[in-house]
Design a binder for these strands. Structure first.
Lengths: 336, 336
DNA sequence: CTGAAAGCGCTTACAG
DNA sequence: CTGAAAGCGCTTACAG
């Protein structure tokens, strides 16, 4: 680090000829509260400025017990959806005086626990977590320890904790309805075989749309393995098409990508007839030879809301506040 | 945060009936060095374990002046190249007991300075920086303040500081040669109009390859605006093709993407004849109707090396160590 | 309106 | 081999 001796409160106090208490009051904007003499306050401020004072965060943290730091645990920071989230959180948190630590769980509860423990140990004031399958216990334990926390993207209906997520059921419903209205008769949903609400809800929306269209019997959900989506897609997609599927609803961006890799190698004339809708946009869609529509998530709003709720919780205690936002269907050129 | 009172050294000391000094020695693995009684050490360890002791990082930092934290400043964490880097750094740093803070400069020196200042203020032990245009002064000032730092992806030949980057000249040379060997006669390079070594070097490699092939005169570099690459590509690419360009070398992933958006709307038969090579892979390449080859950067190795050098510098003083790694050309199916 | 002092949890010379 | 104590830089009751 810097070899220049850092300026401390004491240095400023000496130059100003006052006590460190006074300097602390002034630099923390508490000069009114402690009725510091206006002129003295002014002088202290000027000196601090001139000496380019930077408070020692470690000392502040030790004293106050707060670090102005928050931890964010996502599935994988290199996944575009979460990379985008990271960027927005980074900027927004900075605006509010917070810094963010990121961690990737790879959808493993064990890793998630490990990262959360490290983050808490680092002294984060609160956590934004994308919980993975079977992580209910970990989340409950955090709540019991009175740690400020907001779940993101997914949540557990039985756990009373703040969350920010998409109204997945509605989004899938809209997407499916769109396919049906566009003339497709047998849309098939491609999902992950995981027990997480966002997935369940997307499937529920899909089924509900079919049901409302009098096609309850035709609901057809293909489940891919989360750790090898492409491999399962390789087998299952052609089979579904053979059995009459004329459209696909991809439950996540990664699923869409895996499936498009498979679909692009099928016969072009077959593919051109397919209706395709994904969750979250992707440049790849623009280059695919058949149009791909998608549900757009209001990710910026998600990021802001998560932060807002978390910061409010950290300041005023944990009051559960949740956001279930609507997605927006972005139609690709013309879908059929 | 947690409402449970955290366990401190003192708590352990009381239970063990020893002084906090002893506990500190043992828990920091300095029991040999301070010749702590073997049995006492064992007992302390057990008690610490049983009480689930977690050291207070703020106190440690305040005392030691180190935070076991490093700052990473990239152009934009949501750019896939840097998102990938982030993921690897996060994992590797954790293995070495470090945590990482990220910041995005948006290629602005002002933002870069601002982020760096915040990071230093947060007490990071060192920095990995992707320097932006005209940031020489900022880098020099960091060096003068004796801050451990490793430049990433780009560097300044005139500044004596550690860096980890691609051998850009060689990579561009190889890519251009590949195009020439594949039968293309007038490859054109598409670059950003910035004064950064990595860009200059890529252009130099391209020119050198042409020159070595006796085509020095045909060198043709198109410069896109970094803040609106697509817009400039819209004008300049068709013009280049009209003037005889039969292949393109895209200097970055973002440039490739912008150009492919433009190219895909051109006449198919024209495009199919084009030779296309980019820097860094991209799923989009797999879906483009013409094959796109690319130079692959050893990003994992980059991340490891940066960390290694930085950690070494932080421990043993700033000894300049640099890595200039070779890229690897990944040929798309068949290029022509 | 201001200062002296305690204390956050740790590490480490120093003394024995 | 072990303990008492200083001090990292800050905040904040407390006394005046």
């Amino acid at each position: 680090m810097s070899s220049l001796k850092k300026i401390s409160l004491k240095d400023i106090a000496e130059v100003a000829g006052v006590s460190t208490a006074l300097v602390s009051f002034v630099l923390n904007g508490k000069n009114k509260e402690y009725r510091v003499n206006e002129k003295t306050a002014q002088r202290i401020l000027e000196i601090a400025q001139k000496m380019n004072y930077q408070p020692n965060i470690a000392a502040k943290s030790l004293r106050s017990g707060r670090t102005k730091t928050i931890g964010v645990v996502v599935s994988d920071i290199s996944n575009p959806f979460f990379a985008q989230l990271a960027r927005i959180l980074e900027d927004e948190a900075a605006k509010r005086g917070y810094t963010v630590f990121f961690g990737s769980s790879d959808e493993s509860t064990k890793k998630m626990d490990c990262i959360v423990e490290k983050l808490i140990n680092k002294g984060v004031d609160g956590l934004i977590i994308v919980p993975c399958e079977n992580s209910e216990r970990s989340i409950i334990s955090l709540i019991n320890n009175n740690i400020s926390i907001v779940l993101f993207d997914r949540y557990f209906p039985d756990i009373n904790v703040s969350y920010v997520a998409l109204n997945n059921c509605n989004a899938a419903y809209t997407a499916t309805k769109y396919l049906l209205n566009s003339g497709y008769t047998a849309p098939c949903m491609v999902a992950y075989d995981v027990d997480l609400v966002h997935m369940k809800e997307r499937i529920r929306g899909y089924k509900k749309a079919l049901s409302d269209a009098g096609k309850r019997q035709q609901a057809n959900v293909i489940f891919l393995k989360q750790d090898a989506p492409r491999k399962s897609a390789d087998k299952l997609l052609p089979k579904a098409i053979n059995e009459g599927a004329d459209a696909f609803l991809f439950a996540t961006n990664m699923i869409a990508l895996a499936c498009l890799y498979v679909i692009k190698d099928l016969e072009q004339k077959t593919v051109r007839k397919l209706g395709l809708v994904g969750f979250d946009g992707n440049p790849v869609f623009d280059f695919f030879y058949a149009p791909v529509s998608y549900v757009q998530q209001p990710i910026e709003m998600f990021a802001m809301k998560s932060l807002e709720i978390l910061i409010d919780n950290m300041a005023n205690g944990n009051v559960v506040q949740s956001v279930l936002a609507e997605g927006m269907l972005v139609e690709a050129g013309s879908c059929k």
